[in-house]
């Protein structure tokens, strides 16, 4: 139980500099001053900001995964080491803290890449960098169990 404490204090990330983009994209695109008579770049097609993979989507599939995880929970021994990202298919999360940062970075890349409609221009440098990290999107129903077994 107490083990999670440090992780969580790290989770309050105040990032005022480069890389902030991920958590404030919707402010940059939706807030700030506009001048009605001026042209504004078209943002049509931008799918703004998805917070990690932790979105609790209302779907049968999600419900069944939650149920499975719930049934698997051993409240005596297992103090909640199954994280929601794992449940939602986040893959093998070894260090939640570090991984989260990386995942956040990936998501920005994703969102923004969608926003720019695929890399058909000089953004190739960023693209390459992002694509080097293998994406793990495969359903990972059992990863939580595996991880605990490995650690036991």
């Amino acid at each position: 139980m107490t083990m999670t404490t440090t992780t969580y204090s790290d989770d309050v990330m105040c990032r005022p500099r480069a890389g902030t983009l991920y958590d404030v994209l919707e402010l940059i695109l939706d807030r700030g001053m506009v001048i009605d008579v001026f042209v504004r770049v078209s943002l049509v097609g931008i799918e703004i900001l998805k917070i990690d993979a932790r979105i609790v989507v209302a779907s049968v599939d999600t419900y069944l995964r939650f149920a499975e995880a719930c049934n698997r929970l051993d409240l005596e021994r297992d103090s909640g080491s199954t994280t929601i990202p794992e449940l939602l298919g986040g893959g093998v999360a070894k260090s939640v803290g570090k991984r989260k940062v990386k995942r956040a970075a990936e998501s920005v890349g994703d969102t923004v890449r969608k926003a720019v409609g695929g890399g058909d221009d000089e953004d190739t440098e960023e693209e390459t960098e992002e694509q080097e990290k293998p994406r793990r999107r495969a359903p990972a129903r059992t990863s939580g169990t595996k991880r605990r077994r490995a650690e036991a």
Binding site: L29, G32, M33, V34, R40, S42, I46, V112, A115, V116
Partner: peptide, 28 residues
């Protein structure tokens, strides 16, 4: 367009400006 590079440039310039005084940030 709303490229990552340009979004960051917008944000960085505003952050730098904010160091020196009040700023009315424009939307991207």
């Amino acid at each position: 367009r709303a490229r990552r590079r340009d979004l960051l440039a917008h944000q960085e310039l505003l952050l730098a400006l904010s160091e020196d005084g009040p700023v009315l940030p424009m939307r991207f």
